[in-house]
Amino acid sequence: MSDKKKEIDLEEIIAKYRPVVGFRVKKSLGAANPDWEDVANEIMLNVVEKIKKGEFRGESSIGTFIYTITSRRIVDYIRQKSKVLRHAPEPKPLPSPHEQIEDKERAELIAGAIKKLKPKYRETLYLYYYRDLSRKEVAQKLGISLRRVSERVNYSQKLLRKLIKK
């Protein structure tokens, strides 16, 4: 592999995987935890470093390679944190105001779109996500099959996508 090719790949890799790693870290740490961005950045630096050192030999896919590094770092973080937490509680962080407003607007948009859905779709979303019932419970409550529950949710998502794009 030439050096030039490596560089191009790296940029692509960062662009593609930074959000994926971020998602994974946020899922484990919780979105309210301000550390998730730092941890995600750290992981990406680590990935770049390892690739530069030639540690990625293509034995597995690049996705799996980054997944492994991410999982390990998350485990380390949680271990560290549980040690620290025993001594001092972390003060609550303030999220950046700009991001907040943007997220809020988008959330309003989605909420408005959900309200426009037909009752049968709204009902399914309500039971499945808001009431946190299992798929089976939702199916029983609505008198439909398990498959139908997933279909309704997926179709709702499709409708929402259209409503939001308008």
């Binding site: 998602f23 959330a107 989605i110 909420a111 959900i114 709204r122 979303l125 808001y130």
Partner: peptide, 23 residues
């Protein structure tokens, strides 16, 4: 998954206002 996560988080955070009828 990102799309679904967004939907779920909106529902979890704003469900009470969205689903008043159902509720």
């Amino acid at each position: 998954m990102v799309e679904r996560e967004e939907l779920i988080s909106v529902i979890k955070n704003k469900g009470y206002t969205i689903f008043q009828d159902e509720y």
